[in-house]
């Protein structure tokens, strides 16, 4: 396999292909609404008519992790819930992003107790943190926009090559 090397990056066709893939991914981030506590209500408000996350293409919130792109973790995670969260994250298909919404998800919030997980970044990698208790729906939309900015700077072909075991040379 090492004899096949994937040349990605600076050629015109491949750059345009990467831009096309990023364009497609930016316009349809399907969220997995993982609402455990009060932040879930604000997340529902962001998905509903008044603030409408569907404008950004997040029309189809799916509860099945295999079909979702963005895991919006909204609410307190207790230590009992941690293996469930980790399993759901592992079941998601690449490429995937995580938004930690609210104080409890970012860092445990004001619940510094023995039973609350002090921030979900102790078990899964987080892409965007949204402080707030709960954050306004516009705050969540701002975080989604930040995820979209992150997608824009991504290099999908390198990731595809790496996933398939090909060596990536610049």
């Amino acid at each position: 396999m090492s004899s096949i090397q994937a040349y990605t990056g600076s050629g015109w066709i491949l750059t345009k292909a990467e831009e096309l893939i990023n364009w497609g991914r930016k316009r349809s981030p399907w969220p997995l609404p993982y609402g455990t506590a009060c932040c879930g209500i604000e997340m529902m408000a962001a998905l509903a008519a008044t603030y409408d996350m569907a404008r950004f293409g997040a029309e189809r919130p799916s509860f099945s992790p295999r079909q979702a792109d963005v895991l919006i973790e909204a609410g307190t995670i207790s230590k009992k819930m941690t293996p469930v969260l980790k399993r759901i994250y592992e079941q998601m298909a690449e490429p995937k992003w995580v938004i930690a919404m609210g104080a409890c998800a970012c860092s445990g919030g004001m619940f510094r107790t023995y039973s609350t997980l002090q921030g979900i970044d102790q078990v899964i990698p987080v892409d965007v943190y949204v402080p707030g208790c709960p954050p306004r729906p516009e705050g969540l939309l701002f975080a989604l926009l930040k995820i979209l900015e992150k997608i824009e700077k991504d290099h999908p072909l390198r990731e595809l090559a790496a996933r398939n075991g090909l060596e990536v040379c610049k």
């Binding site: 893939i21 497609g24 991914r25 316009r27 349809s28 293409g57």
Partner: peptide, 17 residues
């Protein structure tokens, strides 16, 4: 109007599990 195209591109490049 290009939303179905974006969905299609995204679905094609997702990991197949």
């Amino acid at each position: 109007l290009l939303q179905p195209l974006a969905d299609g591109i995204k679905l094609f490049t997702k990991e197949d599990i």
